[in-house]
Design a protein around this nucleic acid. Structure first.
Lengths: 248, 248
DNA sequence: AAATTTGTTCGTATAATATGAACGAATTCC
DNA sequence: GGAATTCGTTCATATTATACGAACAAATTT
């Protein structure tokens, strides 16, 4: 299945801003042969994953991924329901707000509202992150069973990202206890040197943790007073979302 | 590049509702061997395109496509900008509203607002449609050059979908002329037997056609009066969007 | 409890890909 | 403006990955 993996690897090279790339450029980046890269690109193009501009002879990301996203309909519903609540929260806090769900022991943002703030703590959509080092993940972890927590730690470990990352299981469990008591999590520079985030749990109808709502700020902006305000707003927003999710 | 194509084919079998499938099921559907299908699924899983549930031993769509969509940032901006305008339009008309863009001679919906109407004219995200048979496409075509129109007809032809589909070039050009005069397009049962849609042009800063805003209804609901109201609302909405797009 | 179906692994025949070469076209350099 | 370089594309063949059947365990159905 090497060919498939190589094709998917090509898609990953399209980083941002509908950037376009040529055959040789991609081949060099991945250490592939120019000729086989060309063939892979044709297949990706035919399936709509990339778009070819014949005037520049360069490729950029296509719309097939959007098609696939459109098929995740249950999760799409959740996104639609959460959006207005998230927008309000983002407006009130003037920060980026994300909706995250648990997927195979990691947290993935499936919806992001971007603030107007000129320094923004960017949250990439669809990218899996470890649970132990971010507010969005810690609050999910707090509501998992001890067995599930053990499995996740066994699978991914507790990798260190900054000096403040929690890397010992005992310390993590204590933190998860505190989170469960207070009903929200906070991460100060545990994943990146400038980021501070808050997160609030989202449950399904059966009261099983399914994700989190998170507010993403920076260490400079997050003083004690602001934190208190964000906690209030975040709790209100997540409770509202949880109430709606109980009804449907 | 057969392996790559096969892998991508597998993704297409996940139709709706986060439906999950087993190895044999997928293999049968595509006529692949059980064993190689298994290998392909592993690769797709490792890259996040599908998710494996070990309790049911079935696969469903993953979140990698969402990640890829997140990278289409310019086009994402357009979606964010258009959303509130589309929501208002959808609310006013109580119909599904779509934002469509021109990609390689076909129209793709990159944003859809769903109405509360219990019979809805569903618009799939990310799926390319021919231009000549739907309102969303015809209005785009109307603002293309004759050379571009010729190329598109040459490439895709004018396939017939219903008795009302325009299949002759002369007739199509006449229709495109009318559209350019009135500033919007309408398709009555030209693509499906029940669908009626209206569409309004969206231009970029350089006044080049880039897509359309469309209202999707059914033949039963769309009487003369309703049509007039939708045209008014649609023109207002698209003009507002075009104004914003000129500024940024 | 037996029978069937399903998921997974393995070895080898077979078919697909990797690679270098080659060429025209586009682009860059002088 | 012409030479030199880079780039995209195609082709033939050596090499390598995949397809396939077989086999088995686990789950599911009968």
């Amino acid at each position: 299945m090497k060919t498939l993996r190589k094709g998917l690897e090509i898609l990953n090279t399209f980083k941002t801003n509908s950037q376009s790339q040529g055959v040789t450029e991609i081949a060099k980046k991945l250490g592939f042969h120019k000729s086989s890269t060309h063939g892979l690109l044709q297949a990706l193009k035919d399936e709509g994953y990339i778009i070819y501009d014949s005037s520049t002879r360069k490729y950029s990301l296509g719309y097939k991924p959007l098609d696939l996203v459109g098929r995740i309909s249950y999760r799409k519903d959740l996104r639609e329901i959460a959006r207005p609540i998230m927008q309000e929260l983002s407006k009130k806090c003037d920060e980026d707000v994300a909706l995250n769900i648990l997927v195979e022991g990691r947290s993935i943002s499936i919806n992001v509202i971007e603030s107007q703030n000129y320094i923004r703590h960017i949250i990439p959509l669809g990218k899996p992150y470890p649970l132990h080092c971010r507010a969005a993940g810690k609050v999910i972890m707090a509501y998992l069973s001890e067995k599930e927590i053990d499995e996740i730690i066994k699978r991914y470990g507790l990798p260190k990202f900054t000096p403040k990352t929690i890397t010992r299981k005992g310390k993590l469990l204590a933190e998860l206890g505190r989170i469960k008591t207070s009903g929200y999590s906070i991460s100060r520079q545990e994943f990146g040197p400038e980021g501070v985030s808050l997160a609030f749990p989202i449950f399904n109808r059966d009261k099983i943790i399914m994700g989190s709502l998170s507010i993403h700020s920076t260490v400079n902006r997050m003083d004690k007073e602001t934190e208190k305000r964000f906690v209030d707003e975040g709790l209100k927003a997540s409770e509202r979302l949880n109430q709606i999710l109980e009804l449907i």
